[in-house]
Design a protein around this nucleic acid. Structure first.
Lengths: 110, 110
DNA sequence: AATTGATACCTTGTACCACAAGGTACTGAA
DNA sequence: TTCAGTACCTTGTGGTACAAGGTATCAATT
């Protein structure tokens, strides 16, 4: 119950930066959805498929991402996502917004 | 349109830490809803009444907050909120979760 | 050739929550 | 007694995370 509460808090915080995290990962390396879930998990950001797929589609529709299909020897083809120029620009804006938020909380928690 | 997008990003990030901000403010000083909105606005965290009132009620129902009524010479009585012991404990958990998130993003943005 | 397990894609239904908009009620001043 | 200011609260809408379930491909086993 208490543990649940804490998990809820964490997940709520993560939500706010989920898109930021995805663009950050894709900036360094093109990746497909299942791969992204793994990388986010490593970074202690838990996401499930039902969250990620619609999110990637949304970001693509906003012109932040693009993708290409690539064959795989270990299953069905993969949809490799990468940042567009607009996605790059938005990532920079997110950097600013994030810094501002971190500063705000430093002040509030002083 | 682009500006709108950026505002959207910011507001999404803020959402995740809104409860954290409220508990942080209330830890230092008891406050009523309208006062909280002002303080959050100063801290560049925009919230409207329709968001804050239900949120305060939720936090109260979770046992994180309590309140007392106080008369005012300048209008209707005010509902002053303050942290409970449980609220204090949850605030500490939020500190941890926040630090973890900040670290995670430092790594992702390196 | 058929089945199984692993991988990868995607959708649907539910629940929650932020926000816009609108409503109630108290106070003091015009 | 009407108005402006302050403060409380609710309702309706839209967005989104998540659980659960579905489809399709490939390789290895049966």
């Amino acid at each position: 119950m208490n543990q649940n509460n804490i998990e809820n808090i964490k997940s709520q915080m993560r939500r706010g930066v989920l898109e930021y995290c995805i663009l950050s990962i894709l900036e360094k390396k093109h990746a497909y959805a299942s791969e992204l879930i793994g990388k986010l998990k490593e970074a202690r950001i838990i996401v499930v498929e039902g969250t990620l797929y619609p999110l990637l589609t949304r970001q693509k529709n906003q012109g932040l991402l693009t993708y290409r299909w690539e064959e795989s020897t270990q299953g069905p083809p993969r949809k490799y996502y990468s940042l567009t120029d607009k996605g790059q620009a938005v990532l920079l804006e997110m950097d600013k917004a994030w810094k501002e938020l971190v500063e705000t909380l430093e002040i509030l928690r002083k």
